[in-house]
Each structure stands twice: as C-alpha cells, then as structure tokens.
Design a protein around this nucleic acid. Sequence first.
DNA 1: TGCTATCGGTTTCCCGGAGA
DNA 2: TCTCCGGGAAACCGATAGCA
Length: 614
Amino acid sequence: MPRPRAALARTLPGTGKTHQVLNLLAETRERAVYVVPTHDLARQVQADLDALGVRTHYWREGPTEEDGCPDLDLVAFFRRFGFIIRFGPCARCRRRKSCPYRKVYTSRANRSADVLIMTSWHLRRRDLWALKATADRDLVVLDEDALGALTAPTELTVAGLQGFVENLGAVREPLDPRPEGEAGSEVFAWLTRRLRKPVEGDEAVLAVTDILRRAALDILRACATSGHGRWLPSERALVQDTSAYDRGLLENDELFDGLLRSAYAAARTKKALPNLFAALRGLLLAPRPVHLSAGACRWTHRANVPPDRHVLLLDASAEPEVVRAVLRRPVEAIDTPPVAQAATVFQVMDRVGTRNAARRDMADEESWLRRLAVEVARRHRVERLLCITFKEDERKLQDLLDRVHGDATVVHYGALRGFNAYGDYPAALILGRPMPNEAHLQLLAVSAFGLGALSDDLKAPRLEWRMLSRTIGPDLWTIRHQQYADLLWAAVWRHVVTGELMQAVGRLRPLTNAATIYVATNEPLPDALDVTAVYAGELFPAMALSGRRSDFAENVRRYAETMGALRAEGLKATNRGVCRHLGLKEPNGLRYRSLAKRLLEGQPGPAATPLSET
DNA sequence: TGCTATCGGTTTCCCGGAGA
DNA sequence: TCTCCGGGAAACCGATAGCA
C-alpha cells in the first residue's frame, strides 16, 4: 500500500513516538530530514540516532567563538531577525573560505548522512528544498510544533514601530554627514522623491531607509484607527506609493546588507534598534492582508514542504484539519492503542480560567488561584512541585510558592513545548486557560485556511460563549465555555487552546510518571486523557467555600463558628439552636450546615458531588 | 423537632465590549 | 492595557408543604 503523503502521530506524550521513529529510521536507513523546534532537542535527537548507528548531520547553531568568526556580534544581530547570514556578514568575510561554521552547510556530510537534522527556523528559508543537502530525502519528520514554524507569524508592535522611527536618525547619521538643518538635508529625508535617483552607495541606502520609515509611519497610522482588530489588505495600510524605483532599491540585497550594517553600527552606540527592516521590506515587496489592532500589525507567512515529500508529524496536540490545511495535502492520523495512564489528573472545574479572569483574580486580596496554589503546595509539601501559569503571574506565584513550599518551579505556558525536564515531577498545578490573544488565533486560521477563513469583508467569525454538556469520568457536566460555531475555526481553537493545555499536562509524562496533576480550568481536555473532574472544595476542604458568593460564604463561616462555640459550652449544636443564635431562618441554616461541618472537621467532601446543597 | 423538597423572586458574579 | 458598565445566568433566599 502506498504511504500517505502526510501522517500525524497524535499520541500522548511519553508513549515514545520519537523513540519509535528514530528506531524506524535506524532499521530502514531511509534518507530523511528531521526537523525540531530547538537546538537542545536537535542535539538530543542526534545523540540518540548516533547511538543507533545512524549517520547524521546536524545544522548546528553558530557560528561560535571556536569557529573563530571575526564578526560574531554582527552575525548574531543578523540572525536575530532571520536574515540569512551567508548573504549578509559572510558574503564579505575574509575568513569565508576557511570558516568551520560554513562547512556545516557545504561539507560532504550533507549528502552522505542518512538523516539531516535541523531546527524548524530553516523551514522559513525559501531555498531550503532546492538545496543539494535536502535533495533525494523523501521523508520529512516534523517533531513538536513544527506547524508553528510553517505558519511563522510576524508581529510589528506599535511600541516597536515608534522606537524604530525614533532610532532611524542613528542609522542615517553616519550615512548623511551633513548636520541637521543644513540646506538640502530636509529634502534628503525624502530621497526617493528627488529627481536624481541614486541606485548604489550610501545615498541609495538612505533612500531605502526612507522608504521603510514611511512604511512604519503608515502602519502606525493604520493601527491607531483599527480599534479592536481588523484585517486589511496591506496596500490599504501602507498608503505610500511604492514606485518601480523603490522596488528596485528594496529588492537589492547589497543595499539591504549595507542598511543592516548601518543599523548594527547604530545599535552598538544607541541601545537597540528594533529589527524591523526585514519585516517592512517583506511587506512592501509582497503585499498581503495584515491584521491591524491598536497595539500591533501582524501577518503570516506560509512556508511549505514540497508536495513530493512525505511528511511525518509528531505532535501530541495537533488538530488534523489544521495540519491538513497548513501542509496542503491529506493527512492520515495514526492512532496508537490506548495505554494505561500512570498519573492522576484532577480537572478543577470551579472557573473558566481566562487570562483576564486570572489577572483579576491574582490582583484580588482573596485570590482563589493563590489559595488553590497554597492548598496544593501544602498537600505536596515534601515533593517537588511544578506550577504552570500565565507569563504575567509567573513571578507572583514563584514568590508565593517559595514561601509556602520551597521546592516549587513555576513556568509559563510559552516556555514548555518539547522540554523534558519535568518528566519526574510528582506533582503539578496547571492554572488557567492558555490562549494567545485572538489576533494570534486568527493568524493561524488565515495561515492554514487562507483568506477563505474570513468573511468577504475580511472579518473573523465571532468567538461565542455557549453551554456544552460533556461526560468527564463518571459524571455529566454542563460547562460554559468559549468556542467558534465554524468547524474549521473550532479546530484552530482546539489546536491552540486544548493543544497548549495538553502540552502542559504532557510535560509531566503522565503515561509513565505517577504524578498528581491539578488542572484549574473547565476548558475541555482531550478524551485521550483520563481525567477526574472535581470542584476545588472536594479536594481541599479549606476551599469548600471558594467560588461561592461572598454572603453565602460568610454565613457558612458564622454558622461553623457558632456550632463550635455551642459545642465548647457542652450544648448540642442543632440547626434550630444555631439558627436562633444567628437570627437565621431554619431552612437557610440547613443550607450552610453541612459545609460548616466540613469546615469544622476539615474533611473533604464526597468525590464529584456539586457543592450546592439544594 | 429535625429534616427535605420545591417555587418564584432577588442578589451576585462573570464576561465581553466600550471608552479612556 | 485598564476600568467601568450592563446583560445574562447562576447562586441564593424566603416561604411553604410535607415526612418521620
């Protein structure tokens, strides 16, 4: 049977899918490209393959000091914004011929190795699949979130653009030695409007600077009037005319190289020049719809793997519909037989857990999230504890857990993927519903499904709140959650939101590690995961009143106090007695009674019983 | 006396959106 | 990015009936 052009292995983390693929490569000796998101992971894969006797070649990070690069800082500067260094600093380097780092790309190992290992950054290179190194490598393995690299979003923030425009003076200075105010220098600022049009040298570089400066100002104006986010063809945001002469200048790599060198020189003396040149140049040369909001201008690229290559995607949380759209080919999902799960996963259902709600909660004196963190920390006092949360809460929670626990690690969602350091943690608390802002979600949808994902006037469908009935463990739960009505958009949502949650749980290696994992959000988790849904109060008696209305919680506390006081006097604490004492109606007293008893006795309630007493 | 169940009106909370 | 506001829904309360 012919092999599918794309296959997605979506098994839970810890099932050893990477291990299986590496063994398969060793067995078959198939010539392959192996793509990973980080250099750390690349080194790990290379070591594993070497141990299996597979000939590998790894496009390592560099150049390093050992390579004797005379322009290390300049190279790093170029690399930071994805500029290919062999067209930039290396093009004029005197050590070009003998550079050990360049040999990585030219050595015979590129052809002779069975498996070529690279980071997903290279997927953005337009020339990648035309290189001899990747020729006759039929299989492309994408390990962990390579989809992110294939859809590669660009984001120009308003603050970044403003800094860029301000700092352009520092770039212009060495190119235009005339002092400010001198006759002709103002005109120089808009060089491309002049009759005399330089095509090389510093004046031409200045002209490129000005074209990009106008572009930055155009985008700033467009962002300022964009409200809560909208899509627009870039030509309508970049209102400047880009003449044939302008295009000629922009397309000239040598001029652009000169501009970046000037920017580098400026960045060495000023603090930092935002690296926006490449992004603006790309947008001017290839107009496309951009997403504008009050804070940023964003768009996506869609890199591609040629249709004649077979793709094997290893990702626990990818959605097949999204993968299919991004790779532009049918995708066959590979299911593995169910494996017993070693970890106990509690989904704490009290809150939805949006980023905004978490921010509000953390700012609150009576923060529910902090109380939950404290309860978990106390229960797992003697064990190492991992806490995964939003970036903005990382510091606060680390401080808190340092005080109440002492051996807790707090990381944010963005720093998790592919990281294996937490596979033996015995306990973890995962807080909130991870969702990048809606603009990022839209960027992925547009990158995957093209402009067809938007309406005729470039609008995204509405993200709606709705009720969802879902069986979790033995119970049926009704969950209020956010979702798109459109099925493709819903897949993008799952790809991002559920996927990110799954990645967080996966860091604990739940199949092999008998950890206790608390996930505090009611966002549905994948069915593949064995989850027990509970309210916080069922796990931690002290939290029995959390999520309750403040007046109700206060009444329960008063009820418990009175019960305690009556017992201390040797009296029987009946409901009538307590209610008389507190001036409560008896039926209401009963609503507080059992919760008050739990508070007094410090006992957890029965599993999976909603807390409402009525 | 002690407790449970239900109905209908009221209070509180959560969330998105508008505006600053 | 933050605050405020209002809609909608959940949580709550008072009253009442009924059972052991």
